[in-house]
Amino acid sequence: MKIHTALITIMLGLSAVSAGAKDVEYGKQLYEANCSQCHGMEGDGYGVNAEDMDVMPKDHTDTEEMISRTDADLFKAIKFGGKAVNKSVLMPNWDKNMNDDEIHAVVAYLRVLCCSNEE
């Protein structure tokens, strides 16, 4: 019985990890399509559109700035746009481009961009 429980725990643990990695991968794809034109292919704020914009898109690789935002803050900024978090309207709302799960995947990717030391 104990072994059985342990097995289930391990399996659950494994599947949680792999789902997380898959989320980040999907989040990255969504980020490239919807965000990189402003925030840059590398997330540093230097997207192809940035040059002619009046407000610089946020640098998502700025660890210090990014850890000052909770996941809920980021989710809100993405779903409802800059205006909803007292930022520029140049940051659009993405509520109709992505469902909530997809926005969560983008947030997961933002966390990798800003705060993982792997690269």
Partner: peptide, 21 residues
């Protein structure tokens, strides 16, 4: 178009000025 709606971030309203995506 540019400031209030933010369209210009992605769309040009004149040749060579505005977003390119």
């Amino acid at each position: 178009f540019s400031k209030f709606k933010g369209c210009q971030a992605c769309h040009r309203d004149e040749e060579d000025y505005g977003g390119v995506s």
